Amino acid sequence: MQNSAQPAFILHSRAYRESSALVDFLTPQGRLRAVLRGARGKAGTLARPFVPVEVEFRGRGELKNVGRLEAAGIPRWLHGEALFSGLYLNELILRLLPAEDPHPVLFDHYAATLEALAAGRALEPLLRAFEWRLLDELGYGFALAEDLHGQPVVVGQLYRLLPDSGLEPVHLLQPGLFQGAELLAMAEADWTAPGALSAAKRLMRQALAPHLGGRPLVSRELFMTLKEPPRD
């Protein structure tokens, strides 16, 4: 079987047999895995993350073959914290997005996020927006401006997240709670509100955790290592 070419980004690649690579692609048709033959040649220079490509897949099975791979557009060169942020996005997609499950909106959001990272925009709002989009696309999203009972979130109220249900109002202090004001700021993407960004990071970690199966994210650990001060 031969499919028409489609836009794609490479999420991850690794050596496969003597001169091939096993490559995970993100396309508008979902996450696809394919064998890229001759990966040590010209094609191999394209088999890097964040390079927009046009790819033609062949084969009916879950593991396809790359029939054609060409550059398409301007590569997003990421450095430092932006690079680790991009690797984090790729790992989230690899871990959470089912194979061959079309998500064209997520593909467009990913491309726009890479462009924003390459342009040097603030990392935290970009990461939180992508995490939210990914959860929503996978059917795990929840309302930020109303609780799980359908009542509006109240500024002075405390809430906890029930990942399968949504936000539940609580009246006793306990770890991991969120202020109503923080949640309303998140709903409006108002990152100037005090505590909104740090609360959004905690909220997304809680929301993602059940879907990651308890395994830590390698990119997150690398990112934390990067931010650690050097030891004497």
Rank of each mutant, 00 (worst) to 15 (best):
residue 29 Q to R: 04
residue 30 G to C: 03
residue 31 R to C: 13
residue 31 R to S: 08
residue 33 R to Y: 01
residue 36 L to T: 08
residue 36 L to Y: 03
residue 38 G to M: 12
residue 38 G to Y: 06
residue 42 K to W: 07
residue 47 A to R: 05
residue 49 P to E: 07
residue 49 P to W: 03
residue 49 P to N: 08
residue 55 V to Q: 05
residue 56 E to H: 05
residue 57 F to K: 02
residue 58 R to V: 15
residue 58 R to I: 15
residue 61 G to S: 13
residue 66 V to N: 02
residue 70 E to H: 02
residue 72 A to H: 09
residue 72 A to N: 13
residue 73 G to W: 03
residue 74 I to G: 00
residue 74 I to N: 00
residue 75 P to A: 10
residue 76 R to I: 13
residue 78 L to D: 01
residue 82 A to V: 04
residue 83 L to F: 10
residue 84 F to N: 13
residue 87 L to W: 00
residue 89 L to N: 06
residue 96 L to Y: 02
residue 97 L to G: 05
residue 100 E to A: 10
residue 103 H to Y: 03
residue 103 H to I: 09
residue 104 P to H: 12
residue 106 L to M: 11
residue 106 L to N: 10
residue 107 F to P: 09
residue 107 F to V: 11
residue 109 H to M: 12
residue 109 H to D: 15
residue 109 H to T: 15
residue 110 Y to N: 09
residue 111 A to Y: 01
residue 113 T to Y: 01
residue 115 E to N: 10
residue 119 A to N: 09
residue 122 A to K: 02
residue 124 E to T: 07
residue 124 E to D: 12
residue 125 P to C: 06
residue 127 L to N: 00
residue 127 L to G: 04
residue 129 A to T: 04
residue 130 F to C: 09
residue 131 E to H: 06
residue 132 W to K: 03
residue 133 R to C: 15
residue 133 R to Q: 15
residue 135 L to A: 02
residue 139 G to T: 12
